[in-house]
Nucleic acid binder design. Structure first.
Lengths: 217, 217
DNA sequence: GCTCGCTACCGTACGGTGTATCCACCAATA
DNA sequence: TATTGGTGGATACACCGTACGGTAGCGAGC
C-alpha cells in the first residue's frame, strides 16, 4: 500500500487529535507510517502545506451538511458543523482564522454560507453580503476558539471544583478577592453552568437577527 | 542596568513585532539583551509564561482607554483599542482566544467590558451577561484575526493586482473559474474595497444592537 | 541482451529550538 | 584568610524542519 497525500493527512490528523498541534512533527508522522521522515517530502512541499491539507479534510466534513431548504437553516447547519468539527479536532480551532483557507472544500463551505446569506433579507448588495459574511465568520471563529480553549484549561486543571481551586485557584481567587474585578468575579462564581451549545446557538441567532433586521440605508 | 521581567517582555515584544511569533526565540531575545540564553530563566519559568507576560503588556495598553460615559461608548472604545493593538502587534492576534488571558490588565479589560455590558438594556441577569460577553468577545477575536490574516497575505503577495494574480492567482483564479464558487468569486472580484475599520465598526454596531434589542424572555 | 537514464526511496547532516545541568567566579561573612 | 552563597555563563540533550547525496529497481533504446 503506497503512500499518498490522503494517507499522510489522515494519520497527521489522528496524531494531532491525540497530541495537539505542538505535539505533531513530521518525524512522528513518518514513524507512524513506518517510513523515513524525508519520504513525506515526496508528497508535500513543507509542513505548512501538510497543515493546509489537514484543514481541508476537516472542511470536507463540514461541507457534507450541504444545502438546506432555507437560508437560515443552511447557515445554522454550517455553523454547527464547524463547531462540531472543531470540538472533534481541537487543533482545527488553532488555525481557524489564522491562515487563508483556500482548499477546495473550504471554498465550498465559504460558497455555501455566502450563497445562503445573500438570500437573507437585509442583504441587498455586495457590500452587505461582505459585511454579513465577515460578521458571521468572525463570530463562529471566535466562539469556537473560546470554547476549545475553555475545554482545554478545564481538562488540564480538572473539571471538579477542588482541582480547579488547587490549580488556578491560588492565583485567580486571589485576584478576584482584590475586589478590583467584581463583575468578572460574579461571572466566574455564579456563571459557568450554561450549556455551551445552547449559548452558541443563542448568540448565533442574535447575530443573524441583527444582520437581517438592519434598516434600509 | 539589571535585567527584569518588564525589560525582557519589552524586547520580546519588539522582536515579535518585527519577525513574528515564529521568529521569536529565547536565544534571540537573550542575544538582543547581550546575555546568555539561560539568564532569562531567572525571571521567567518558561517560554509560555513569557508569552503571557507579553500579552498582558498589550492588555495594559488596551486598558488605558478607561471608562467612558455610556456603556456603549465604553464597549466601542475597548473593542477598537483591541483592534488597534492587534494591528500594531500582529502576533497578538495569533494568541487571541487561544489561551486564557488571566493577567491583571487582561482581567481589567474583561472587567471593564463586562461592567459596561451589564448596564446595557436587554441584559437582565447573569446568563444574559455571560452570553453578551461571549458574543462580543467572539466577534472581536474573530474579526481581528481575520483582518490580520488578510493583511499578512496581502503583504506577502503584494497588494497590487499584478502581484496578486501572479502569486495566488494561478491557483485561486483557476479555482474560481471552475464556476463552482460563484458567490465567492463575486465577493473576491467585486468586493475588497471596503474600509476595514468601517466594516468592523458597522458589524460591531449590528451585534450590540442585536444584544440590546432582544425581546424579554 | 546490454546499457542507460529515470524515478522512488532512504539515511545522514545541518542549523535551529526550549530547557536541564554543571561550573567558574566574586563578594561578603566567619 | 578561608569559606560560603549566589550570580552569570557555557555546555549538553533531545527534538525539530528540511537540504542533500546516494542507492536500488525498472523500463526504454541500441
Amino acid at each position: 500500500m503506497p503512500l499518498s497525500r490522503e494517507k499522510i493527512a489522515a494519520t497527521a490528523i489522528r496524531l494531532a487529535d491525540a497530541h495537539g498541534l505542538d505535539g505533531l512533527s513530521l518525524r512522528k508522522i513518518a514513524k507512524e507510517l513506518g517510513v523515513g521522515p524525508m519520504r513525506l517530502y515526496d508528497y508535500v512541499i513543507n509542513k505548512s502545506e501538510l497543515l493546509d491539507l489537514m484543514v481541508d479534510v476537516v472542511y470536507a466534513r463540514i461541507a457534507e451538511v450541504g444545502q438546506r431548504p432555507g437560508w437560515r437553516d443552511t447557515v445554522l447547519a454550517i455553523a454547527h458543523a464547524t463547531r462540531d468539527a472543531a470540538l472533534d479536532h481541537e487543533w482545527f480551532s488553532d488555525v481557524l482564522g489564522g491562515r487563508p483557507h483556500l482548499g477546495p472544500h473550504a471554498l465550498a463551505v465559504g460558497e455555501a454560507t455566502a450563497a445562503a446569506l445573500s438570500a437573507a433579507p437585509g442583504v441587498r448588495d455586495i457590500g452587505d453580503l461582505q459585511r454579513a459574511v465577515g460578521a458571521l465568520n468572525a463570530f463562529v471563529i471566535g466562539s469556537v476558539r473560546r470554547e476549545v480553549t475553555e475545554r482545554r484549561t478545564a481538562r488540564s486543571t480538572g473539571t471538579d471544583e477542588a482541582a480547579f481551586q488547587a490549580s488556578l485557584g491560588p492565583y485567580l481567587t486571589r485576584m478576584l478577592r482584590t475586589g478590583r474585578y467584581p463583575t468578572v468575579a460574579r461571572l466566574v462564581i455564579d456563571g459557568a453552568h450554561l450549556n455551551a451549545e445552547e449559548t452558541f446557538n443563542h448568540n448565533l441567532t442574535t447575530i443573524l437577527d441583527g444582520i437581517t433586521s438592519r434598516p434600509p440605508t
